[in-house]
């Protein structure tokens, strides 16, 4: 694959500051280990209802999570990983949030008027009900929503985690989430939100904007290759080519084109 543009001409403007790039990958490792070890801890009692009681909303009560999804090897090991990695997650998250606050990057993520409309336009574009990629800033509206929701889910995961780690010493915190049982539910809900958003994120990176991987490693990004510039839908490169590349004829031909 050859790049039609000499790299020397690309204006050196980092898409992601190095702090964002480092915290991103630290966060990746921390989340994978926190989820894996958390699921291993869950396997010590893989259910949400007390013994002999029914639970409405989880189809796999008392069925352990498959080992390949877990990390830590055994309950004690998983607990050690969980309680060690939680500091990495928290400190890393605080560095990231402090940085984007001071550096102004939060402006690319904070919800604004019109985001819901723009999100709907993105959905329409991805479902072929809109031809051209909606105009966007650094991120499209759907991305913005996800990146804004993730730190909130992260904070919820951390706080509910503390609530079920120290339900006696910090009983006020546990009470805030509705008691131990509810704090545990919230902990799982936060984890699920993080996992679902992360899976979609990784999928979209590979399917729509693989060039962003480089930008998250080196910081460089060529705007000419952005999904907006390429009009990229998921797996755009596997899709049949767009209709005859007639670049806006001066007079529209009389034949019908759909």
């Amino acid at each position: 694959m050859t790049s039609p543009h000499p790299p020397a001409k690309v204006k050196s403007r980092k898409r992601h500051h190095w702090i964002v790039r480092v915290t991103h990958w630290v966060n990746f490792v921390a989340i994978v280990i926190m989820v894996g070890s958390g699921l291993r801890i869950f396997n010590a009692y893989p259910a949400f209802a007390r013994k002999g009681e029914m639970f409405c909303c989880y189809p796999f009560e008392h069925k352990p999570i498959p080992a390949w999804l877990t990390f830590g090897g055994w309950l004690g090991g998983a607990r050690h990983w969980h309680f060690a990695m939680m500091w990495v997650l928290v400190v890393n998250g605080l560095i990231y949030l402090t940085f984007i606050y001071l550096h102004g990057d939060w402006r690319d993520l904070v919800p604004r008027k019109g985001d819901i409309r723009d999100s709907w336009q993105m959905v329409k574009f991805y479902t072929f009900r809109r031809k051209d990629h909606p105009h966007q800033g650094k991120h499209n509206a759907l991305q913005k929503g996800a990146y804004f929701a993730l730190p909130i889910a992260g904070a919820l995961a951390v706080l509910t985690g503390i609530a079920i780690w120290k339900p006696v010493q910090l009983s006020w915190l546990t009470a805030l989430f509705g008691g131990y049982v509810w704090a545990r539910y919230w902990h799982f809900i936060a984890m699920l939100v993080i996992v679902i958003l992360s899976v979609i994120h990784v999928f979209m990176v590979f399917a729509v904007d693989p060039y962003s991987i480089t930008s998250m490693i080196t910081g460089n990004y060529d705007p000419a290759l952005s999904p907006e510039a390429r009009n990229a839908r998921p797996f755009y490169h596997l899709l049949p080519p767009r209709r005859p590349a007639a670049p806006v004829p001066v007079a529209p031909p009389p034949t019908e084109s759909t």
Binding site: W68, F71, G73, F83
Partner: peptide
């Protein structure tokens, strides 16, 4: 990731985990 699955994690991490336990 696959190698890490269902594992106890790298052996070298044991010291780090012990350190974290003491700090905790």
């Amino acid at each position: 990731l696959l190698a890490a699955c269902d594992s106890r994690g790298p052996k070298a991490a044991d010291k780090l985990l012990k350190y974290a336990e003491r700090k905790n």
